[in-house]
Design a protein around this nucleic acid. Structure first.
Lengths: 242, 242
DNA sequence: ACCTGAACACCGTTCAAGT
DNA sequence: ACCTGAACACCGTTCAAGT
């Protein structure tokens, strides 16, 4: 009897037929929604519509609800980030590769940036191999004990930091906001801000704080390079000291 | 006639009486709501309740609605961040002070961190004197032209980066999430994650990715110090090269 | 097992009055 | 000038059915 009956999973469904929905499809649909409508446009109902399904159906496959979907999306985006095993003789090159891969992955899905950088729920989905290999790279650099943990925290913060800032989203469909900010930057007090006023032409919309577009439209490439150079050079020096 | 009539602002109100509401009170109430209920708990209606006022009243003083309030809150939190004018002979010390003041300010209002770090709307409220003086400090360091702009972007990203990550919020009132994640970290595969498993005791909840509490409850002090040291040492070296 | 459905307690904002 | 009020089109999630 136990050997002939259908498995619970197949009960009530025609043989060989896919169920209407599955976990992977939901996560893919969620990422599509985020890519097109942003993190603010991500709603359970939007994902359900994307799949042509009643919005409550998602909760069956991901009982954790909204948080569970976001955590799973974070995991998918992170999949391409990890480089292969770190080279013991070239640990800083491995870190550099990690940084570049992270930025590249997030540039493919820029709207996910605030999720990875500013919501701890995203951590739950991350492949812990990233932690493992980062620790190995820092081992190779000579960091040990609590110093290695401190270096690890510095690396992860630096890894996500720039990209989170660069890809921070503009208020959605609020053209008034961008316009007001742009005109405010045109009428700067030269006596209050002499340095900024002089550099304005080259800085406006190409630098943090004085921009009204996100990094998707206005990337900050040279800023990223200097950020990465500075951090890695500094880390090398700290490695030698320890 | 024009000289004796009340100003428009005073029409219909008893003389010398404060109006029921003003801009500063709204912003202060908004910050209080964010401090206690988090950025997710920040709603126009919650702010109105905090003030004992109908929720639509806020729109009169801040016509920009939700975005305008958030931008104003960001400005208030940023007020304490800026150090005095940079010393030409000690530009890196000025940057260090800036980083420490930023982290201290955000530790007083940790729930604002995602707003400043991951939402570009916050920029609209920032005092541009921060931009001015950061550029001056980089001038003092010998950065010029496009290199200075790149260095500026690196500095601002580094300034907000660590703290945004450190203070990223946990999913609100979802105890199940923290619990599930904590137990997952207890049952690690030793062959897959040998380095992480060995360091687990010292890392769990004290390091990015393998934590389930935010930086408010579990600060990452030594990580911040190494991050700051590494970045500033690297920036000094890059300054000499240019 | 897997999906639908109605209902609940929210939310930001528009549009129209009140005084 | 300054605030209230009702209404609109949302939202995530609980609880109860359907097949």
């Amino acid at each position: 009897m136990t050997s002939t009956r259908k498995t619970p999973r197949d009960a009530g469904r025609p043989k060989g037929d896919q169920t209407v929905l599955n976990r992977a499809q939901i996560i893919a649909a969620a990422l599509r929604v985020i890519d097109t409508a942003g993190l603010d446009g991500f709603t359970m109902r939007a994902v359900a519509d994307e799949l042509g399904v009643f919005h409550r159906a998602i909760y069956w496959h991901l009982p954790g609800g909204r948080n569970a979907v976001l955590s799973a999306v974070a995991a998918v985006v992170f999949e391409d980030v990890l480089p292969s095993e770190p080279d013991v003789t070239n640990w800083d090159a491995w870190l550099r590769a990690l940084f570049c891969r992270y930025r590249a992955a997030l540039r493919r899905h820029p709207n996910v940036a605030p999720l990875l950088g500013a919501q701890i729920v995203s951590n739950a989905g991350v492949d812990l191999l990233l932690v493992e290999r980062t620790l190995q790279a820092l081992d190779a650099g000579g960091f040990t004990g609590n110093r290695r943990i401190a270096a690890y925290n510095a690396v992860i913060a630096a890894l996500l930091g720039f990209v989170t800032l660069e890809l921070a989203p503009v208020p959605q469909d609020d053209g008034a906001w961008s316009e007001a900010f742009a005109t405010r930057l045109q009428s700067l007090d030269r006596t209050l801000f002499p340095t900024l006023t002089a550099a304005r032409v080259d800085m406006v919309n190409r630098a943090f704080i004085v921009r009204w577009q996100s990094g998707t439209e206005a990337p900050l490439d040279s800023g990223f390079e200097m950020y990465l150079d500075a951090f890695l050079i500094g880390l090398q020096h700290l490695a030698k000291r320890g």
